[in-house]
Design a protein around this nucleic acid. Structure first.
Lengths: 154, 154
DNA sequence: TATTGTTATACTCTATAACTATA
DNA sequence: TATAGTTATAGAGTATAACAATA
């Protein structure tokens, strides 16, 4: 029973938005400082790359500089990240998490993950393994296509 | 090698946004009337349920009535859907696709699917089957959680 | 009085264009 | 002159609160 790529594509096209809405809702529900998905991803990237520049964040997110600047502005305004001029090249900016940013990130990550774990608990062991494998298959092809797009559009 | 639900959740949390960005980018690139993801989903639902009400669309999308009203407004403004007062219950509205809406929907669907098929072509037969199965597993649990949320928040 | 939908308002996400500061 | 970032402006997505029309 071989699967047509068209069927598979259609399936992904329908299921991915369902998953995303779930993630968004859960993050927003975490009031007392809910994070949007882009905000969450920004904090995550900065945590993994402390001292990173705005351009690097923009490339990672797949956004333009102004959009990223605004996003970062908001997070700076809410004291979640520090934005300093780079001492080496003063045109650049060095971004890092504040204590508060780190703890909010951890809370959001834990909360969202916990809720998703609850949903996943309905799955059998086999199904879960299957889903895990599928995600590992999909990640590289979508991660790659992402970079190609950013380059194309410059 | 059993998979922990926590790992699986983390994986989904990282991969789903990658997929979504890809879908969004592709739809937007289809300028000459690009559709956003919510717009696309709205047209899709109306095609499948001609004469549907605003409330039903809102429930399907997981949005509030005002958000949905605005979304529909925009699509009406661009002549993609018809909005008529229901003859039975005049508080209600009956939504259907215009010719133009149908052809734009088909074009968007074809384009986005085609591009995703290209990405999926890198997969082996086994991987594709696996991904298909995973989507079929995930769909009901996220579709259900969606409905539960909407009910809770009313 | 309850239900269906719209309007008003506000915030976030995203883009392009124009600008500033530094290299 | 080229690069890193910001500001100005604008459109779309989303929400809550207040309202209008119909049942």
């Amino acid at each position: 029973m071989s699967v047509l790529p068209e069927e598979c594509a259609r399936e992904i096209l329908e299921v991915a938005p369902l998953i995303m809405r779930n993630i968004r809702e859960e993050m927003r529900r975490h009031r007392t400082e809910g994070l949007s998905v882009p905000q969450f991803r920004t904090l995550l990237f900065i945590q993994r790359h402390p001292g990173t520049s705005l351009s690097d964040v923009a490339e990672h997110l797949g956004l333009r500089l102004p959009s990223t600047s605004k996003l970062v502005d908001l997070l700076v305004g809410r004291s979640m990240i520090n934005r300093l001029s780079s001492s080496g090249d003063r045109r650049k900016v060095e971004l890092s998490l504040t204590e508060r940013g780190l703890s909010l990130l951890d809370a959001a990550r834990a909360g969202t993950q916990k809720q998703m774990v609850e949903l996943l608990s309905e799955l059998t062991v086999d199904e879960m393994e299957n889903v895990m494998k599928a995600m590992q298959t999909l990640r590289p092809i979508f991660a790659l296509s992402e970079r190609a797009e950013v380059e194309l559009s410059r």
